[in-house]
Design a protein around this nucleic acid. Structure first.
Length: 830
RNA sequence: GCGAGAGUGGCGGAACUGGUAGACGCGCUGGAUUUAGGAUCCAGUCCCUCACGGGGUGGGGGUUCAAGUCCCCCCUUUCGCACCA
């Protein structure tokens, strides 16, 4: 509490915050309409994982969204600003195991605590639409989504090598493996051969890339990251032939123009093709040993061994279909099993990796590309491959062709001959969604010995997660050990059958939550199409950059799928994306529990008040930049609010000003007119800065305005009161409790948030007198004040007479005089 | 290694389409008030110089009357990707 001895005013934030939060709740200020009729604004922040504590990062995220929501509310739009919980997932389960609690109890308890904290922050969430992803009435529809995908053949089961985390004892999606380690617990990931459920996101790869171009208001870095993650590359698939077995060995290459330079072939150790080669004695032994060794090597080993390549010769040969050359067939672990066909044609002269490999094992190198028609490559002096485009040489009828054209010709040739084709490849893999864990949405599939995997009938949803205490991870799904869950009848033939024991990746739950907010209580459908049509797309989505290649791809994928099956209208879920910066401690380190440097917004808010904390966070840095948090940033804000801004309410004269009225210069004296201009300039600046989410300069502008404002010098009551009321309106999105309190103190009816955002008077945003910089040869020599829009002649005449200017142009010849209206004069003299 | 962003006072950071660099705040210095501390108010605060003036937005070049802003090279740093053939 602030001491304000001698002053009648006291800013009792605890009382004020409590009172306004109650009032807002009572009046349902943030209750969204079912269907907007006028202009709408769907403000979305990423829903939260209920870990039990709300940290500074959350706080920052939500107050940014809140400010935008409140601003748009004041612009008269219908607002949808919901919140919910990403409540399934591994950490809940682990925490629950450690604390000997059930994940459900742990999760719901955390939600309760976190919700109460958030409610204290005064964020304008419509809590009546809260969504909890682990609640059966939500995951019922997550399962429904699965079934729709399954019906379209976009959810399927396949066996393959998958990422397995030995610590968490579950499979992981590619996105959850970072540097060969489990994203969550940092345990090195191993590969296992398992049959798992996948979503065919690759089917949408092109649209996921191409539609990024329809999103001008997404940050470029996110779009670039997504493009690279999806990794589309154009090239050719060429069928080589295994010499002995005659088997076709298709390979993918982006450089078919180097086809005559192929001197060996490399196959990934995991490739099943190797088993079909009928290797002879010693070779067989060596290859098998190598394959075993490769499999033992962890992912990190293989990744960190950059540069160093090894492999083993199979003793077999393949035939290049272009020239019939016999080339050696190697097994090498620098070839990725999962990309292309798991085998590559190696062109040492024109690929750095192949070059290293060929040097190491003394494999021939053959130059088939020259940089241009006059420059030739000399193999004896090459210490790396030449990988640029160039002119084809030593390539029979293709000699002389260049770059793109060469690639096209070579591929067309293969197509005509039937041993190759144009081909597009992606780095993106199908999305592995099965998890061998308890705390997730059960996969709504029944395995029937006769009918195979059959979807649960929609009328039977949800497939309830059985309440069991037996959820400790042991390498297979805990649900498999719950017989009453597993045992069921086939929906098709009625015979004995078993449920799928796996649960879904939580990213599935978070891929459609934004649609459920629009109709959160719907029992009959995931949502009402008409309501969704009215509210979508999301007008602003605010979150951290960490989800660039995970969630933000998945939710776009879901949107597109739902569009394809007629449930939504838009191709893209969110038109504007904004990534706020991270919040670090004062030393620039990431806040984490293990480091013990976590600053909780709760204690801060209790000590300084919610609005001071909000303003402090807003003021310290622009939204997209990272913040090194220290409580000191509050100091300046506190002085500003307590000593200057809040006391403005005391200067209110209750003159019932018309806030829509514009004034003329003749209504005022000089000080008043200048204040009027300053006010309108501030309105303009603040409106623009809020639109681009730059809140630090919003506060700076308000500081300037209230610094210049001296009520004693203002005789016009309407100006005095209008300036105060508009200032309150302008700070309202950032400091809602404060604004409401001042609004009330100024005898205004209703909430400041139902008042109309001020509009600036376009005839009063420039001062009548402007300062003109005087330069000689680009150097500043003085400054004069003239009336706005003065003519070049007049200004130059004054400028030439200016003492310091004169001193610098005397004895010199004036070559050029430049006048930028209302800004500067530059006299060029020699 | 590849790609993208960033580099401005002691600190956080301003600066719209090239046009007075350092808004706003912290900190610091001096003054007023106060028994004192705190708080508040006023003034000052990029660097060198008594001043005139000069230098200055990571470094070096360039374009321009004019560059933090545009172009080229380099350094540092953050983030992403990392054998994707």
């Amino acid at each position: 509490m602030q001491k304000t001895e001698g002053k009648t005013l006291r800013y009792d934030f605890k009382e004020i915050e409590r009172r306004w939060q109650e009032t807002w709740e009572k009046n349902g200020l943030y209750r969204a309409v079912e269907k907007p009729d006028g202009e709408k604004f769907y403000m979305l922040v990423m829903f939260a994982y209920p870990s039990g504590d709300i940290h500074m990062g959350h706080f920052r995220n939500y107050i940014v969204g809140d400010a935008v929501a409140r601003y748009n509310m004041m612009l008269g739009k219908d607002i949808l600003h919901p919140f919910g919980w990403d409540a399934f997932g591994l950490p809940a389960e682990r925490a629950a195991i450690q604390r000997k609690l059930h994940p459900q109890d742990w999760t719901y308890n955390n939600i309760k605590v976190s919700r109460e904290t958030l409610q204290k922050v005064g964020v304008s969430f419509d809590w009546s639409r809260e969504v909890i992803s682990c609640s059966p009435d939500y995951y019922k529809w997550t399962q429904w989504m699965f079934i729709q995908l399954f019906r379209k053949g976009l959810a399927y089961r396949k066996s393959g090598l998958v990422n397995w985390c030995p610590e968490d004892k579950t499979v992981l999606a590619n996105e959850q493996v970072v540097d060969g380690k489990c994203e969550r617990c940092h345990t090195p990931v191993v590969k296992r051969e398992l049959t798992q459920w996948y979503f065919k996101i690759t089917e949408y790869a092109d649209r996921l890339i191409d539609d990024l171009d329809t999103l001008p208001n997404w940050p470029d870095n996110v779009k670039t990251m997504q493009k690279e993650w999806i990794g589309r590359s154009h090239g050719a698939e060429i069928d080589f032939i295994i010499k002995d077995t005659g088997e076709k060995l298709p390979i993918f290459t982006t450089r078919p123009d180097t086809i005559y330079g192929v001197t060996f072939m490399a196959i990934a150790p995991e490739s099943p093709l190797i088993d079909r080669l009928n290797l002879d004695g010693d070779y067989k032994k060596q290859v098998n040993e190598y394959r075993k060794k490769a499999q033992m090597r962890s992912e990190i080993d293989r990744v960190s061994a950059t540069g160093e390549k090894d492999g083993v010769f199979t003793g077999k040969y393949a035939i290049n279909p272009y020239n019939g050359d016999e080339i050696q067939l190697w097994v090498a672990d620098y070839v990725l099993a999962g990309y292309g066909t798991g085998a590559v044609m190696a062109v040492p002269a024109h690929d750095s990796r192949d070059f290293l490999f060929a040097k190491k094992y003394d494999i021939p190198i053959k130059v088939v590309i020259h940089p241009d028609h006059v420059t030739a490559l000399d193999l004896s002096t090459m210490d790396d491959a030449y990988t640029e485009y160039g002119v084809m040489v030593n390539s029979d009828q293709f000699n002389g062709l260049e770059g793109e054209e060469a690639i096209k010709e070579v591929t067309d040739f293969a197509e005509r001959k039937g041993f190759g084709r144009h081909k597009i490849n992606y780095k993106l893999r199908d999305w592995l969604i099965s998890r061998q864990r308890y705390w997730g949405a059960p996969i709504p599939i029944i395995h029937c010995p006769k009918c195979g995997p059959v979807a649960v009938l929609e009328s039977e949803l949800p497939v309830l997660l059985p309440k069991t205490d037996n959820f400790e991870p042991k390498g297979r799904s805990p649900l498999a050990d719950v017989p009453e869950f597993m045992r069921t009848k086939c929906p098709n033939c009625g015979g004995e059958a078993e449920r799928d024991p796996d649960t879904m990746d939580t990213f599935v739950c978070s891929s459609w939550y934004f649609l459920r907010y629009i109709d959160p209580k719907n029992d009959c459908a995931p949502f009402d199409k008409k309501k969704v049509k009215a509210w979508m797309p999301i007008d602003l989505y605010v979150g951290g950059i960490t989800h660039a290649t995970g969630h933000l791809i998945y939710f776009r994928f879901f949107q597109k799928f739902l569009k394809d099956i007629g449930w939504v209208d838009d191709d893209e879920p969110a038109t504007v994306l904004f990534n706020h910066g991270m919040v670090m401690d004062s030393k620039g380190e990431v806040m984490s529990k293990s480091k013990g440097n976590v600053v909780s917004p709760i204690s801060l808010m209790e000590e300084r008040g919610v609005d001071m904390s909000r303003l402090g966070m807003f003021f310290t840095a622009p939204t997209e930049r990272e913040v090194l948090w220290s409580d000191e940033v509050i100091v300046g804000i506190e002085k500003f609010i307590l000593n200057r801004f809040f006391p403005m309410a005391e200067r209110f004269r209750d003159s019932k000003p018309d806030l829509k009225r514009y004034f003329n210069q003749s209504d005022f004296d000089d000080y008043e007119w200048n204040m009027y201009i300053k006010l309108n300039q501030t309105i303009k600046r603040v409106s623009e800065d809020i639109t681009r989410l730059q809140f630090n300069t919003v506060i700076a502008a308000l500081m300037e305005l209230s610094r210049d404002f001296d009520s004693n010098k203002i005789k016009n009551d309407h100006l005095n009161d209008g300036l105060i009321l508009k200032s309150i309106q302008m700070i309202a999105p950032l400091a809602p409790h404060l604004a409401e309190e001042m609004w009330l103190k100024c005898n205004q009816n209703g909430s400041v948030f139902t008042s109309h955002w001020p509009e600036y008077d376009p005839n009063a945003v420039q001062f009548d007198m402007v300062k003109i910089a005087l330069q000689v040869n680009g150097r500043l020599r003085g400054e004069i004040e003239v009336s706005r829009d003065s003519s070049q002649e007049d200004v130059l005449a004054i400028a030439r007479k200016h003492n310091r200017v004169k001193a610098h142009i005397e004895d010199k010849k004036i070559i050029k005089e430049i006048y930028i209206k209302n800004r500067l004069v530059n006299i060029v003299a020699k």
